[in-house]
Design a protein around this nucleic acid. Sequence first.
DNA 1: AGCGGTCAAGTTGCATACAATCCTTTTTCC
DNA 2: GGAAAAAGGATTGTATGCAACTTGACCGCT
Lengths: 238, 238
Amino acid sequence: MSRKSTVGLRDAIEQDIVTGRFAPGDRLDEVTLARRFAVSRTPVREALRQLGAAGFVTIQPNRGAFVAEIGPTRLVEMLEVMAELEGLCARLAARRLDPERRNALLEAHRACEGALGSGDADAYYYENEHFHHAIYAASGNTFLAEQARALHTRLKPYRRLQLRVAGRLGTSFAEHAAVVEAILAGEGDLASQRLKAHVRIQGERFSDFMAALRDGERARWDRASRPSVGYIQPPSTT
Amino acid sequence: MSRKSTVGLRDAIEQDIVTGRFAPGDRLDEVTLARRFAVSRTPVREALRQLGAAGFVTIQPNRGAFVAEIGPTRLVEMLEVMAELEGLCARLAARRLDPERRNALLEAHRACEGALGSGDADAYYYENEHFHHAIYAASGNTFLAEQARALHTRLKPYRRLQLRVAGRLGTSFAEHAAVVEAILAGEGDLASQRLKAHVRIQGERFSDFMAALRDGERARWDRASRPSVGYIQPPSTT
DNA sequence: AGCGGTCAAGTTGCATACAATCCTTTTTCC
DNA sequence: GGAAAAAGGATTGTATGCAACTTGACCGCT
């Protein structure tokens, strides 16, 4: 479990946050993390500061680092920005799609189709990620793709159960298909509009869901569902 | 020149980058910075890692930190995203403007008018920042405002000479006025469209300008204009 | 019993020492 | 004389020790 470079350490902790091993609000003790990764406190501190700058943890001076808690309000705000960024990706992709990116996009889309056919929600979740990443890349705007990807990752802990809702998989895939169609047709505005709607639908399901629960219940529910299997885990690159 | 908290140190170095005291590509030596701020290397390293995560510096393992160099391509990419974020700010502002934010926006706009009247390009530059920040805040989306502000700051070193072009001040203000009008009228799409165009015009001037210079000349010119007065410096809050 | 203050344990912030890596220069061999 | 290799210097990466701060508990006081 030991990492070599400091960037590896940062990514390792980030993964533990993104996959839910560390729940929002959890305290990230420096010495505990240091022991866990078999390094001293210094690289741990540097990693935590980076995660703080990226928004994954909040650092309270002299009091430590905590996994960032994203309240319902801020979550909706982030999804609003996410929708806009994805919309821009789609618009640009429709305008400037090159053959290589076009193939990657179609391949990701077909992979989603395969996962849908198998009825495996976890597999679809994973292919869905690839699909969105393919759209980011298809924009041809590296910076935009990085930003979209970063925000996508930050939202990951809160999207884990999104697609488990009954019937959502099929709807999601149909929306994907409509986006792909618009992109291939070069209809930038339409593609943007459709992808924005696709993201917003997830956001609305979210806020509905969270609003329906009182805070205590939500916290308990969050925590209970935390160690839920590794369907987010990509094939380990270690 | 000594700072107390680590966040203060981060901000101090960031300021030195943003205001151009450190030019893109400059090496940021840890011991030099440590001496400069009268601290040890440890807090300097933590600050540099944070700046790396925020995109202000690029960190090469075992080789040090350098002020991020933003090439013409990436600059255009960043401006494309900036335009979209600002456009979203304007759209949301038109939809949800509350009296307090409305007043702040109008006040910032009038301050621009004052600076324009005085013909002071530096003053206009400063008030222009306030105006854009007021629009970010007027969106009512805290996360969006933070993102827009962060990107705005990252682009600051490359915007320093934007408004010095003859006649640009007046045009800029007219564009501002059109945006404000649309926001007050509740015309979200129009406000978004106008603000996007406003940002894009700056971007096009940029790329025209940079394309007209070969790289060597541009680097020299960048460096020569670097220590140019402190018209960016806000009233120090130290 | 309730409230306030003091003290102790634990954690973070910073400084310094050491190890590892990189870059430059010099030396040596062909 | 040129090129490759090695040594030296310099810089970054990591570990550890100490000081400062926060926090919780215990004790005394009203």
